[in-house]
Design a protein around this nucleic acid. Structure first.
Length: 238
DNA sequence: AACCTCCGCAACCGCCAGTTT
DNA sequence: GAAACTGGCGGTTGCGGAGGT
């Protein structure tokens, strides 16, 4: 315990005395880009030292992921992208990385910022609860029936716009289950049963079996990921 | 011109889950 | 099996610019 405490202190001391924070300079950007071009991504912890940057690995990763990657699309969010964000958020909630994975070139950070600064306010001004996507006058917790209505009325979710099956962690289509399964759940269930069914639906989302279409499957094979949902927004070297 | 407020966005923080030792 | 390490995620912060007074 004492070892880890002193290690932490050393780490903090190092952070305070050696590591740079705040906005990145063009010079730092080019060092990072050059390094990754030569050596590829990964090993973020040791990357700064090897690249000669006075940043923590986390900061380097964030800068690369959100700003420097060639696949990152800059500029304003288009109307169709906004529409897609709204629909995906209605289904997934604040699962920014999952949402970003379905919008080529956009990062989770960008979508999160756009949501918080634009879309959330837009919905509120329209009298819609940004959490439930329902009119504020309605019950805060969506029922399964309402959930089914959302799915049936949404071409992205109900599969009229591309694939609509289950996906694994690599964002590959596995089956045509998912949305249609949920949509076919008996809506005459009692409150508790509805709660259970809804919970299981949410669990399926937690396993990335989201019943919505992903339009970019073929063109954008995702990188392998060692964590739950995978980071699906890019397809460079991982 | 100076000050204030608001807004957008880059960056940071804390936590978690998966992997490695 | 436990601890340490690593990468990733979502929430939050704070800076800088724009616009208003």
């Amino acid at each position: 315990m004492r070892n880890s405490a002193s290690s932490l202190l050393r780490q903090q001391h190092r952070t305070i005395t050696e590591l740079k924070r705040g906005p990145w300079t063009p010079d730092e950007d080019s060092v990072l880009v050059d390094y990754i071009a030569r050596n590829g991504e990964g090993n973020w912890r040791t990357l700064p030292k090897r690249a000669g940057l006075l940043r923590c690995g986390k900061s380097c990763r964030l800068r690369w992921m959100n700003y420097l990657r060639p696949s990152v699309k800059r500029g304003r969010i288009e109307a169709d992208e906004e529409d897609l964000i709204l629909r995906l958020h209605r289904l997934l909630g604040n699962r920014w990385s999952l949402i970003a994975g379905r919008i080529p070139g956009r990062t989770d950070n960008e979508i999160k910022n756009y949501w918080n600064s634009h879309l959330r306010k837009k919905l509120i001004s329209q009298g819609i609860d940004p959490k439930t996507h329902l009119p504020v006058s309605e019950a805060p917790v969506p029922s399964l029936r309402r959930y089914r209505d959302i799915q049936n009325s949404d071409p992205i979710i109900n599969g009229q716009n591309g694939c609509h099956g289950t996906h694994n962690n690599n964002n590959e289509c596995l089956s045509t289950a998912g949305g249609s399964e949920i949509a076919s759940v008996d809506v005459t269930l009692g409150d508790e049963e509805v709660g259970d069914a809804f919970s299981s639906f949410l669990n399926s989302l937690m396993n990335d079996e989201a019943p919505f279409a992903c339009q970019n499957q073929a063109a954008t094979p995702p990188p392998p990921s060692n964590s739950g949902f995978g980071h699906q927004e890019g397809w460079g070297t991982w």
